[in-house]
Computed example of a mutant assay.
Amino acid sequence: MGFVFRLQSVLNIKKQIEDGLKNDLGKAIIEYENQKEIYNKIEEEKKNYVDSVKTKSQEGISVGDLQKYGNYIGFLNNKAKEQMVNVKNAQDNVDRYREKLIKASQERKIMDKLREKKYTEYIKGQFKKEQQISEEISNYKYVENLG
C-alpha cells in the first residue's frame, strides 16, 4: 500500500480556500482599479472645465454664467470627494483579502510541511523494511548454504 496522508482532505480544503481568496483578491483589485479610474476621470473633467472657464473669463463672461460654472466645479469637487471614499473602501477591501490570503497561504504551507514530514517518515520506514527483508534473504541464503 502506498503513502496515505491522513489529513489530505484538510489540505485539499486549505488549497481550495486559498484559491478562492486569490480569486476574491483579484476581483477586489479590479474593483479598486475601476474606482481609481472613475476618480481620475472626475479629476480630469474638473481640470478641463476649470481651464475652459479660465479661457471664457478672459474673453469676457457674465457674472451669472460665472456663478453657474462655479456651481458645477463645486459639484465636481463633491463628486471627487465621494469617489475618493469609494476608492478608499475598495483599497480597504483589497487589504482585507490580501491579509486573509496571507493567513490562508501560511496555513496551507504548514499542512504541506506536515505532509512532507509524514512522507519522509514513510519513505524511511519503507527503506527500513526493505533492508530487513534484504537481511532476512541474506540470512536465509547463508543458512541454506550451510546446510
Rank of each mutant, 00 (worst) to 15 (best):
K141F: 13
Q58R: 10
S134C: 10
A104K: 00
G2C: 10
I38F: 03
G60I: 01
F3T: 14
R108W: 01
N78Y: 05
L11H: 06
V94P: 00
N77C: 11
K117E: 15
K79D: 11
I102C: 00
N23W: 06
K36G: 12
Q131R: 08
K103M: 04
K141D: 08
D51H: 14
F127R: 15
K56M: 06
A80W: 03
A90N: 03
Y142W: 05
R115W: 00
E82I: 14
F75M: 12
L21F: 00
R115T: 08
Q132C: 10
K141C: 03
N77S: 13
E130G: 14
Y69D: 04
K56F: 02
D95I: 00
E37S: 15
K14Y: 10
E144M: 09
K100T: 00
D112R: 05
E130H: 12
V50W: 02
S9H: 04
Y97R: 01
V143P: 03
V50E: 04
Q16V: 12
Q83P: 06
R108N: 04
Q8N: 10
A90G: 09
A28C: 05
M111V: 06
D51L: 15
N12M: 05
G20K: 08
N77R: 13
K129C: 08
K22G: 03
K100S: 02
G64K: 07
T55G: 05
E130W: 08
G64E: 07
Y97T: 01
K103I: 01
G125K: 07
S134D: 07
E99D: 02
Q58M: 13
V63T: 07
V50P: 05
N12C: 05
K118Y: 05
K54W: 04
I13R: 15
K129W: 13
N93Q: 02
F75R: 11
I73G: 10
K14M: 07
K109L: 07
L114K: 13
M1V: 12
S52H: 12
S57H: 05
K117S: 14
S105Y: 03
K14G: 09
N93F: 00
N34M: 10
N86L: 03
N89Q: 14
Q58W: 09
V53M: 14
E37I: 11
V50K: 12
Y39Q: 15
G2E: 09
L66V: 03
N89K: 15
E144T: 09
E99R: 01
I133V: 14
Q132Y: 12
D19K: 09
